[in-house]
């Protein structure tokens, strides 16, 4: 009797969104509690790796939209960009700057250079691991 990968497909469809959400959660709580860009990026790549196991490298490329290598370099640029405010203010590199954007209701969206740095690291980690995995997959095919 031949078998198929139905269970893994369904599981990937349900589990991957939860993993992605958790990775974003880790990314945003990074500054004063455990978490941060690196571990968030790892969890996100775990999610995409699971997707790649279930649906193949081509589908994974398609949902990533950008090539993983571009993600990696964009992440590095982003992390670099987080040093600009400190540079303009004449402070040592990577000094934290904070802004608060008022939102409808009484909330604030807190933006800070550490967060921008974390987003950069997130993209760089995701890009690196997906570059590995996808090129390994394609060299295998």
């Amino acid at each position: 009797m031949k078998s198929n990968t139905l269970i893994l497909h369904t599981a990937a469809l349900f589990i991957m969104p939860l993993q992605l959400m958790f990775s974003v959660f880790l990314l945003f709580r990074g500054h004063d509690e455990p978490g941060g860009g690196f571990i968030g990026g790892l969890v996100a790549s775990g999610a995409f790796v699971l997707y790649a196991f279930a649906f193949g490298s081509e589908a994974t490329r398609r949902i990533l939209r950008v090539a993983p290598r571009d993600l990696l370099s964009a992440g590095l640029l982003f992390a670099l960009a987080s040093t600009i405010p400190a540079f303009l203010a004449g402070q040592p590199m990577l000094t934290a700057h904070w802004w608060e954007l008022p939102l409808p209701g009484d909330g604030y969206l807190k933006l800070s250079t550490p967060l921008i740095f974390d987003i950069g690291v997130y993209a760089a980690v995701l890009g690196t691991i997906m570059t590995f995995v996808i090129s390994l997959m394609e060299s295998d095919e």
Partner: peptide, 13 residues
């Protein structure tokens, strides 16, 4: 939660 998430991916791999 992190171990649960990454452990599952590891087992599948």
């Amino acid at each position: 939660l992190l171990i649960a998430v990454m452990g599952f991916v590891g087992t599948v791999a």
